[in-house]
Write a protein that binds this DNA or RNA. Sequence first.
DNA 1: CTGACTGCAAACGTTTTGCACGGTA
DNA 2: TACCGTGCAAAACGTTTGCAGTCAG
Lengths: 134, 134
Amino acid sequence: MNNYTTLLKDYNLKVTPQRIAIVEELYKNGHMNIDDLYKKLLDKFPSISLATIYKNVNSMIEKLFIAEVKIPNAKSVFELTKAEHAHCVCSSCGKIQDIEINVEDALGQLSTITTFKVDSVDLVFTGVCEDCSK
Amino acid sequence: MNNYTTLLKDYNLKVTPQRIAIVEELYKNGHMNIDDLYKKLLDKFPSISLATIYKNVNSMIEKLFIAEVKIPNAKSVFELTKAEHAHCVCSSCGKIQDIEINVEDALGQLSTITTFKVDSVDLVFTGVCEDCSK
DNA sequence: CTGACTGCAAACGTTTTGCACGGTA
DNA sequence: TACCGTGCAAAACGTTTGCAGTCAG
């Protein structure tokens, strides 16, 4: 029983070869959109259906096992759930980088303006990554 | 020549009654999705087409006159371009509030981690607004 | 054994496109 | 007048659904 299998069970998701492959790809690549996933899984499962990808992604989101990240001017990507973090999106190569940012300062500012009760924070930086700025 | 007309001309957009109405609604309501706009404009233009809304929204985005805001678990909304700001989205009533947040602190943290060159920052707080938490 | 997952095809909702007509500059 | 915008219909996309067969627990 490998890591991915254990992970799926932890989140009450039935273990199937297709699901293991999805987790594996997300683990390896960090962030993938639906098409990325479909193309990757086609290698292992030549007759896999896009519907299967959608169904699995949706049930994984419901179980909070993965999360959707909405990106400006691009398709949403999915990632394994982890501690709160921000994203850097390179507008040149499209690469997405996780960044640990402490948002206490922003939350502090917010609390001086409004009594809005924050549940979650989505923070995306768009710009040019190290590689592309060379 | 009213305000909206001048605004459109400033952004090199031809002035039509439909476009004036779109700007007017966005000005009054702050944030609207495509359907909101369509329903509102139907009052003034009973035979307006959704295609017209889409075409206009797209050309306004191209000219940087309006901007798309991607919201977690909801449709994108559009707003007139203005100074950088964050958004508070109420998961109970859906209302969206503009908030002026200074992101220097976050940018400072980012610069200690990576040399990613930031062009823009998208910051969305999801939670419960003042009204809904009563 | 039972319920859940898969793959296919069809359905659905959203967005875009092509075209004839009308309006803006 | 020349070009661009409008509205309609059709097309193109992306995503979801229903179903029969298969697999995991």
